[in-house]
């Protein structure tokens, strides 16, 4: 068995209700999303805010209940029984975006990292202490014995994010879901945290789902990528191919938007091949068509996610070359 995670037709709709009105609108946060993840693979989920990336992550961990769809983790279907919940919540860990908000400022670093061990009742007190120190060495927070007794406010943003990583690692997970782990950090230390994540992946054969809107850091860590737009996967495939030859107009727009440090940028307008965002969510037909510069008549129907090449899928009738 090669797959660590299989997600099939996952769907979650939220009802948006006004306080005073009984009728509400439905937000299709995740709509019929399927993907799979091999052991040791890094899959990037990319898209803007509101594209459903984080909801997908929360559904996998069952922090929220899916409306429909299957999640199979390491050969076991995740349901509401204690056994499968315990498995996924132990072997699949999450890293959140903001290291200033995701660790408790009143707890010592040692207690923060030890907490998951206590929850899952692993080891004796002495063993736990050793495991925490090992995790600190692993994320290169040295000297670990010193950091052990510190409080979060004594650490910098990059160091805090490594504490979060240590807390995830201490349970020896098979899958780590990292939700924008470096977007709050300085550019100069982003590469350091990403490098560390990659080292750990190779050493322990951990799989990652890396959630981001920043395609340039995505390329650094990922092997495969799925681009999400309004709850749907619109394009997926090997990362270098997707980023160098995008097939979906939305992927192209995301790529257009990225700045690279080139002095020539100064002289030209930034061209983004996208129409002004209409803030109405379109759920019929192609969801991107209101913003798509290539939209044709046929886009009123929903485009299926079809194979467009070796390992590549795109949901678009136009398909760029």
């Amino acid at each position: 068995m090669n797959e660590i995670l299989l997600v099939q037709n996952l769907t979650k709709h939220f009802a948006k209700k006004g306080i005073f009105s009984s009728s509400g609108t439905v937000v299709k946060a995740v709509d019929d999303v399927s993907f799979s993840l091999k052991k040791g693979e890094v899959l990037v989920l990319a898209g803007e805010s509101g594209s459903g990336k984080s909801t997908t992550a929360r559904l996998i961990l069952r922090a929220i209940e899916p409306d429909s769809g299957r999640i199979v983790f390491d050969g076991i279907e995740i349901g509401n029984d204690n056994k499968s919940l315990e498995k996924i919540r132990m072997q699949c860990q999450m890293i959140h975006q903001d290291p200033y908000a995701s660790i408790n400022p009143r707890m010592k670093i040692s207690d923060i990292i030890m907490e998951p061990l206590e929850i899952h009742k692993i080891g004796t007190k002495e063993e736990r202490k050793k495991m925490v120190l090992d995790a600190l060495h692993e994320v290169k927070l040295e000297p670990a014995e010193d950091v052990f007794n510190k409080f979060p406010h004594m650490l910098s943003g990059g160091q805090r994010q490594r504490v979060v990583l240590a807390r995830a690692l201490v349970l020896k997970p098979k899958l780590i879901i990292a939700d924008e782990p470096v977007s709050m950090l300085d550019v100069s230390i982003r590469a350091e945290v990403l490098e560390l994540m990659r080292e750990l992946q190779q050493k322990h054969d951990i799989s990652y789902i890396y959630i981001t809107h920043d395609l340039s850091t995505a390329r650094y860590l990922g092997q495969n990528i799925s681009i999400m737009y309004l709850g749907k996967i619109v394009e997926s495939g090997p990362i270098d191919e997707v980023l160098l030859h995008p097939r979906h107009p939305y992927t192209q727009a995301l790529l257009d938007a990225i700045s690279e440090p080139e002095p020539d940028n100064l002289l030209k307008e930034k061209k983004i091949r996208i129409n002004e965002p209409l803030d109405i969510d379109v759920y019929q037909g192609c969801r991107f068509r209101a913003r798509c510069p290539y939209a044709i008549e046929k886009c009123n129907e929903e485009p299926p996610l079809e194979q467009t090449g070796q390992d590549r899928l795109a949901a678009c009738f136009v398909k760029l070359d």
Binding site: V187, S188, Y220, E260
Partner: peptide, 12 residues
């Protein structure tokens, strides 16, 4: 700075 094109290796 991670780049979109060219070399993947970044330094910190």
């Amino acid at each position: 700075i991670p780049r979109l094109r060219g070399d993947k290796v970044t330094n910190y």
